[in-house]
């Protein structure tokens, strides 16, 4: 499957807004429902935010590459970075029991959102040593316009 687009941008938080706009336009062109577009844009934004915060530890000079491809069944995004490798189990750290105003903690929310926004999320380190996050959403769930 060929990429529909691939962009490279610095790990600067101010670039999140134009990246969101690009992805939103792309999904609108492909006639996805507004509700699903909102979910995917939010999930992808969380993935980019994780790159900036955790892979590059807030450094603004890191490189992030985002590719998108649309198949007959799946919409797939691939996010690559050259930052720190996350812990092996980072995609499976979702425990949020007994949340109250006194026990709630202001971190770990991005991963929860990311996993709820996409149908399938996987991570690997590629042959070039880059972190690769693959985010997939089923197309059949989308409403065609």
């Amino acid at each position: 499957m060929r990429d529909d687009f691939s962009i490279t941008f610095r790990s600067h938080p101010k670039l999140l807004k134009p990246v969101r706009a690009l992805v939103r336009n792309y999904l609108e062109t492909a006639h996805f429902s507004k509700e699903k577009i909102d979910d995917i844009v939010l999930g992808l934004d969380e993935a980019c935010t994780n790159c900036i915060r955790h892979a590059y530890h807030g450094a603004r000079s890191g490189i992030i590459q985002l590719s998108a491809r649309l198949g007959t069944i799946w919409l797939e995004f691939e996010l690559q970075d050259c930052g720190s490798c996350p812990p092996k189990d980072f995609l499976h750290r979702e425990k949020r029991n007994d949340i109250t105003p006194t026990t709630i903690k202001p971190h770990g929310l991005g991963l929860i959102i990311l996993k709820r926004a996409f149908d399938n999320v996987s991570f690997h380190v590629n042959e070039n040593g880059k972190n690769c996050l693959i985010l997939r959403a089923r197309r059949k769930a989308f409403k065609k316009g």
Partner: peptide, 11 residues
């Protein structure tokens, strides 16, 4: 628009 960093701020 609000992402998890906004929610974390509210928290």
């Amino acid at each position: 628009y609000m992402d998890s960093s906004g929610v974390a701020t509210l928290v």
